[in-house]
Design a protein around this nucleic acid. Structure first.
Length: 502
RNA sequence: CGGGGCGUGGCGCAGCCUGGUAGCGCACCUGCUUUGGGAGCAGGGAGUCGCAGGUUCAAAUCCUGCCGCCCCGACCA
């Protein structure tokens, strides 16, 4: 069968990913290494994510602020542990002027006395503000978020998943007690899970990271992990309980109600445009992108079929009327967004929208108009699997129809994750499971494996060195089970989730 | 940053071995035909063949250097 995307996922997954981004018009490469231009169809996904999250953050009292993109070099010279993690990938501004050079080109001039670092993350500069803003327990909790771009000079980039510059939000909070900070950390993790499942239809595992995978400077890192269709794990969001580490590094103290001096407890949390990469790899198929309705720029495209000149006006009027009616419908608190594609390019027109992943395609021809009906194709079903329904029925049930697409996508992804999640207690099985047959160009293999781990970082490292498999997360429910470590056979009290990851 | 592959109109590719001023499919524009479907015919626009040197009467093709992309690693909130 002919597919709209070549190669297929099975043939070459990484190449398929690139081709989907191209074919769906989400983004394109920029002239700058590792950077990308996010096009309207792609940026709308981010806008919908940001709008949803922003509402949820505000609902729990978080306020937005904005901190500078430039961070004084001295801020990163503090002894904070996390700085080491970023030092190698910082872009640094050293000059503030361009002058005509000898060759006729422009050359940097006007050397800065103190170089500025382009933020890879904003902890240091935000903590600097927190120090000024906090003096009493009455100032707490302080709940701040910023929507921003950050730059990390990555060795190897991939569109959406790891780009040199990316868009994200970073939440930073300060609390009077460890309990308050931990509560907030978990509250955010729940919001991320809700976002993933209810907006992106992306099932996730929620858990805590092992020490090796923890954010440098955090006491605990919590994450949501999703399974892509190549069965690799994608860390889709993180929420960190930072203890008093940053408070001590930045000297953020407050006076308690009983007049004692204490360090604040802080958290930080983020999701980024990486989520869009996750979205592509969770739902995309060999015909292109597949978008869940709540995150799509538009839910519906109307495709009038009116090639006989005498039909043209009537069909267009019918189409416009339907669009107007649909746009009055609210879907999860927002008016439906409806596209009309009037081009007369035959079936190719429909395929373009399939590749772009729009949830519903509605064809409107003379016969539909005569019967007061519409011909509807769902992106989550085969492209030939289209049904005729009465126009009024379609409009009245549009919300249910879109919700059904959402839950179908979510269930499908859940089933896939379940199908490729296994419990393993035998080391050989474990190694075989994670070893591809073709090492040069690995086929799709592996998945999530729940195995016992003794807690020794050396076992974790050994497995990483041998198989490039890491512990993605550990349950936060405190479930225990006696067993023996998949690596060293020592006694273990719990299973953790192993997988290859992005 | 190491190993491998690749850079030719918007997209996918052939041509390169055996140098002789660039071709195919899709997309785009025009006309006719078709009309519930990734349409057919005819015509057309669009490429300094990644960049820079070199060899040569002549370079997409041969040589050298560089850049970029993809994969496997290393690295990585």
């Amino acid at each position: 069968m002919k597919t709209a995307i070549t190669p297929t996922r099975e043939q070459d997954y990484p190449e398929w990913y690139q081709q989907v981004i191209k074919a769906s018009d989400l983004a394109e490469r920029s002239p700058v290494r590792g950077c990308m231009v996010i096009k309207p169809w792609g940026y709308a996904l981010w806008e919908n994510i940001t709008r949803w999250l922003d509402d949820r953050f505000k609902a729990i009292g978080v306020r937005n602020a904005y901190f500078p993109i430039f961070i004084p070099l001295s801020f990163l010279e503090s002894e904070a542990k996390h700085v080491e993690g970023f030092a190698k990938e910082c872009a640094v501004v050293t000059h503030h002027r361009l002058e005509k050079g000898k060759g006729g080109g422009l050359e940097p001039a006007g050397k800065l006395t103190e170089p500025l670092v382009v933020r890879p993350t904003s902890e240091t500069i935000i903590m600097d503000s927190f120090k000024k803003w906090i003096s009493s327990y009455r100032d707490l909790p302080l709940l701040i978020n910023q929507w921003a771009n950050v730059v990390r000079w990555e060795m190897r980039t991939r569109m959406f998943l790891r780009t040199s510059e990316f868009l994200w939000h970073e939440g930073h909070t300060a609390h009077a007690t460890a309990e308050d900070a931990m509560d907030l950390t978990m509250k955010i993790l729940d919001i991320y899970e809700d976002l993933a499942e209810n907006v992106l239809a992306m099932p996730v595992l929620k858990g805590v990271k092992s020490e090796a995978e923890r954010f440098p400077g955090a006491d605990d890192t919590f994450a949501i992990e999703a399974m892509m269709q190549d069965r690799k794990a994608l860390q889709a969001g993180t929420s960190h309980f930072l203890g008093q580490n940053f408070a001590k590094a930045s000297d953020i103290k407050f006076q308690t109600a009983d007049e004692l001096e204490a360090y604040v407890w802080t958290t930080s949390w983020a999701v980024s445009t990486r989520l869009i990469g996750g979205l592509i790899m969770t739902h995309g198929d060999d015909d292109g992108l597949v978008l869940p309705p709540k995150v799509a720029m538009s839910q519906i495209v109307l495709l009038p079929i009116s090639r006989k000149p005498e039909d043209y006006e009537k069909i267009m009027a019918y189409t416009d009327g339907l669009a107007e009616e649909l746009r009055k419908v609210h879907y999860h608190h927002r008016p439906l967004s409806v596209e009309i594609d009037r081009r007369d390019t035959g079936g190719a027109r429909g395929w373009e929208w399939i590749k772009k992943g729009i949830p519903l395609r509605v064809e409107i021809g003379p016969r539909d108009m005569a019967a007061d009906s519409v011909f509807v194709g769902r992106r989550d079903k085969g492209h030939k699997d289209r049904v005729s329904m009465k126009r009024a029925e379609f409009v009245d049930n549009i919300g249910n129809l879109l919700d059904d697409i959402h839950s179908n996508l979510l269930n499908r992804a859940r089933d896939y994750q379940k199908e490729h999640t296994h419990r393993m207690d035998d080391k050989e099985d474990f190694y075989r499971f994670f070893t591809p047959e073709n090492k040069e160009k690995p086929e799709i293999h592996g998945g999530f494996v729940e195995s016992h781990w003794c807690g020794n970082p050396e076992c974790e490292t050994k497995i990483k060195d041998d198989l490039n498999v890491t512990i993605r997360c550990m349950s936060v429910n405190g479930e225990t089970e006696d067993g023996s470590c998949i690596c060293c056979d020592a006694a273990s009290t719990r299973r953790v989730v192993f997988a290859k990851s992005y």
